[in-house]
Amino acid sequence: MSVARFWRKQINRYNIVGTHCKTCDTHYYPPRNVCPKCRRDGDIEAYKFAGPGNVVTYTIIHTAAEGFEMQAPYALAIIELDEGPRFTSQVVCDPKEVSIGMRVKPVFRKLGESGDKGMIYYGTKYVPDNDRN
């Protein structure tokens, strides 16, 4: 991913910052600038989520995506934030630990890098919230 393309959404990745539609009180993460429910009647504002959530579903990826080879096998999950929205993230732990419905909390990690010379991309991943499982 190009430098500018990553940087543009950096604040949404460093912290779980999405959007909220004041018209229908729906939260969005990843952020949306148009509320799909209200469309032009929507009133969108930035919204910082608390962070914790649940695993909706997951997989253990053995054949890694390009750039993720060193991490294989890794757990990829759809996570539902306590405020409602769902998004895709890695759950960083022993893959055997992951289960549907488990509580997870955010951590700050490297998302990737553009080879040895390029940018390092940082952002949020998830880990099991062992105090709440």
């Binding site: 579903t57 997989t59 990826i61 890694a64 990737g112």
Partner: peptide, 25 residues
């Protein structure tokens, strides 16, 4: 979604695997 799935290491088999996992569950 390159910006919100691919960047996290999602692959196509990975996405369908998450559907399968849910279907099994």
């Amino acid at each position: 979604d390159r910006e919100w799935e691919g960047i996290m290491g999602a692959t196509f088999p990975g996405l369908y695997a998450m559907i399968a996992k849910m279907h099994m569950h």
